[in-house]
């Protein structure tokens, strides 16, 4: 269970996350949505202990993220941040295998190898495994990063905009894959996403932020209401049923 208790983050005089409290139970997919600058990434980064908070506390399975040893947390929760510009020239295989670092510190075991093979298969990275990261397209690189996080094999996975630089086909493939990871391996996935339809289609729960506060929290159908979405995003929204699920049209 992830417990966010009254967390606040300020940059200078701007409050980016404003006394947010949130509990995410084990299992299931939770989408974090909201307009630009709502504090989604900041919240995500604080849960993944990439940045410190100014007030409040965050616990993952009762381990305080600011006080627990980094290595111990790394076997429990993983985070892929939005800004993942890597200059090191690593092969896909090397990168994915680094996901095992919290367990074996680079002394690759047979078990690590098994995890590597399973992840490479699962992410369909076989043909690319010996390529260097700088020889991949943006989308392929994003898949390699997600693979590294999956190879880390943590109960909780935080993904800040995992669909970054993915085209329609690969975005959908990625979402189906995350759904499978969640259902088949009983993982808890929390991800930041901009596309409200993706969020509602694939998630069990949608948390909406605006100006650093949680303005909506519930299942996809409670989120996919014109008045809810209009109050969050300030656009006119029409909800239609497509393939038996609510679908938001906000163009035009």
């Amino acid at each position: 269970m992830i417990e966010v208790d009254n967390v606040t983050k300020r940059y200078g005089s701007t409050t980016v996350v404003d006394s947010v409290s949130l509990t995410i139970a084990k299992g299931g997919m939770t989408a974090i949505v909201g307009p630009n600058g709502a504090g989604k990434s900041t919240l995500c980064s604080m849960i993944g202990r990439l940045i410190p908070m100014d007030e409040g506390s965050i616990k993952v399975d009762r381990f305080d993220v600011t006080a627990t040893k980094g290595e111990r947390l790394a076997r429990r929760i993983s985070i892929l941040s939005q800004e993942n510009h890597v200059t090191a020239r690593l092969s896909v295989e090397d990168l994915v295998l680094l996901g095992r670092y919290p367990y074996t510190h680079g002394r690759t075991t047979v078990e690590d190898r098994e995890h590597l093979e399973a992840t490479i298969d699962f992410m369909e990275l076989g043909p690319l495994r010996h390529r260097f990261l700088d020889q991949l397209s943006g989308g392929q690189r994003q898949r390699a990063f997600v693979a590294m996080v999956l190879c880390q094999d943590t109960d909780y996975i935080l993904l800040d905009e995992p669909l970054n630089s993915l085209d329609m086909k690969h975005a959908v493939a990625m979402m189906k894959l995350l759904r499978r990871v969640c259902d088949e391996q009983q993982k808890t996935i929390v991800y930041v996403v901009h596309d409200v339809n993706i969020a509602s289609w694939y998630s069990d729960r949608v948390v909406a932020l605006r100006d650093g506060r949680i303005v909506h929290d519930g299942n996809p159908s409670s989120f996919m209401q014109p008045e809810v979405m209009e109050s969050i995003f300030e656009v006119d929204v029409v909800i239609r049923e497509v393939k038996g699920k609510p679908f938001a049209v906000y163009y035009g």
Partner: peptide
Amino acid sequence: AADRFTVAGLGESFATNLGLN
């Protein structure tokens, strides 16, 4: 310490995620 430097070479976010100080 080679593996530590590989992880550090990915940048601070990746390194922190992997539990490296």
